[in-house]
């Protein structure tokens, strides 16, 4: 939008009718301007990076606290319970759906999700050998989605716009 001599001003008619003694009766014009920002980040995945490197190799890694043996997926880089520095540990990537939601809208952050058509199955998976729930997308027939469903990772060779999408879950018994 460009503005010049004949600036388009909306008059607030509600306010226009305000009695003269109203404290804001002298403020009846209103202009709205557009403002666009484009923000691009170079965002480091930091100490999480190995998880994503291994996904590219078709392997699933978590972190394990050497003191309390708690296994974190997604990896935590400091133990939640005892502040110990964890070790990387490989899991099979198989697990069980503990809760889920079916998203009927596409928030569209990142090209990988934008390209999905139809409902998105967001599942929280307790990985075999893990102690936390790993959130990811499940691809399967809608009638199969349920708490308790056994799932396995399907690795993707790419290209993807975010390395988290180098995998998704499918039902464990599905032959691809």
């Amino acid at each position: 939008m460009l503005y010049g001599k004949s600036i388009k001003t909306l008059i607030d008619h509600e306010r226009n009718r305000l009695p003269e003694e109203h404290p804001w009766s002298d403020f009846i014009e209103q202009i709205t301007v557009s403002f666009a920002l484009q923000q691009e980040y170079r965002h480091s995945l930091g100490r999480y990076s190995r998880f994503f490197c291994e996904l590219a190799n078709g392997r699933f890694f978590a972190t394990r606290c050497p003191k309390c043996d708690r296994v974190y997926a997604p990896p935590r880089t400091l133990c939640l319970d005892c502040q110990s520095i964890p070790d990387w540990v490989e899991l099979s990537g198989k697990g069980t759906v503990k809760t889920f939601s079916v998203l009927h809208f596409n928030a569209g952050i990142g090209a990988d999700v934008k390209s999905i058509h139809g409902p998105i199955f967001l599942v929280y998976v307790l990985l075999d050998g893990g102690h936390t729930l790993f959130p990811h997308l499940l691809r399967c027939a809608a009638e199969r989605l349920a708490i308790g469903l056994r799932v396995k990772p399907q690795y993707v060779s790419g290209p993807v716009s975010h390395p988290l999408h180098l995998m998704y879950f499918v039902p464990e018994d599905e032959v691809l």
Binding site: F100, L103, A107, I109, V113, P135, I147, L164
Partner: peptide
């Protein structure tokens, strides 16, 4: 609003707070 969720692990899945609340309620 998505930026107030975990951008590294959840937002990139298309996750938004509506989805997280929903999964919690499902449980």
């Amino acid at each position: 609003f998505a930026l107030s969720a975990d951008v590294d692990w959840e937002v990139m899945l298309g996750g938004t707070y509506t989805g997280f609340y929903a999964a919690m309620m499902r449980a």
